[in-house]
Nucleic acid binder design. Sequence first.
DNA 1: GCGACAG
DNA 2: ATCTTGTCGC
Length: 233
Amino acid sequence: MGIIGVPAGWPADEEAALAVQRELRERLVLDEEGPAAGEGHVTGLDVAYDDGRDLVAAAAVVLDAATLEVVEEATAVGRVSFPYVPGLLAFREVPTVLAALASLTADPGLLVCDGYGVAHPRGFGLASHLGVLTGRPSIGVAKNPFTFSHDEPGPERGDFAPLLDGGEEVGRALRTRRGVKPVFVSAGHRISLAGACAHTLALAPRYRVPETTRRADALCRRALAEALAAERS
DNA sequence: GCGACAG
DNA sequence: ATCTTGTCGC
C-alpha cells in the first residue's frame, strides 16, 4: 500500500473549502430515523498525524453492533491535505479516511466519527461530510464541547443535556459512565439525534468513549508508527 | 480588536 | 491532534 496523495482539485485555501462545504451541505439528509442501535454493523473512524512528516494515518474498524466484536479492519496512510482550521476539520481527514473505507470488504453500516456532525458553525461537520460523500448514515461523537454551550447533565449513565447553538439543540452532552465527563453527540447524515445517542450508549457499555473510536484510535496510531518506520528505511 | 475553537 | 512521569484509584 502506498501513500495517498492530496487529491487533484482539493481545496487549496479556506475560501475554496468553504465553497465545497456549502455545496455538499445541500445533500445532507436529516429526516431519517437511521438504523436501530445494536443491529447490523457500525464502523469506527479515526486518524493520527505526524505533522513533521506531513503524514496522516486513518483507520476504519467494522464492529458487529450486537456483540461489539471486530468484523474487519482497514487502514490507509496519506499526505496531510489541509491545515487544522476549526470548522474545516473534514478537509484534513477525508481523503485518507475514504481510502481506508474503500478497502473494506464488509458493509460498514453506521459511520461513527471522532468529532461533530450537524453541530458545527455551518451545520456540516466531519461526520456529516463523510456521511454525504459515502451516502451512509453517520454520527459524530466528540470529546470536547467545541463552541457550544450546555448545562451539566445528570450523574448517571444515559443522562444528557442539550448542546446549544443559540437556542437550538444541535447535539447532546451525553454521559456514558457514571460520574465521568460526558461525550458530545450529534447526528451526521441520515439519522436522528435520539438515534445517534442510542448508538453511542450501546457502543460505550464500559468506557467513556465508544468502542468504535477506541478501536479505530489504537489502529490508526499503529498504522502511523509503521508508516514512519517504513519511510525511514 | 481579542480570545476561543472538533482533531 | 501532539509533546510527556508519575500517580491515585478501581
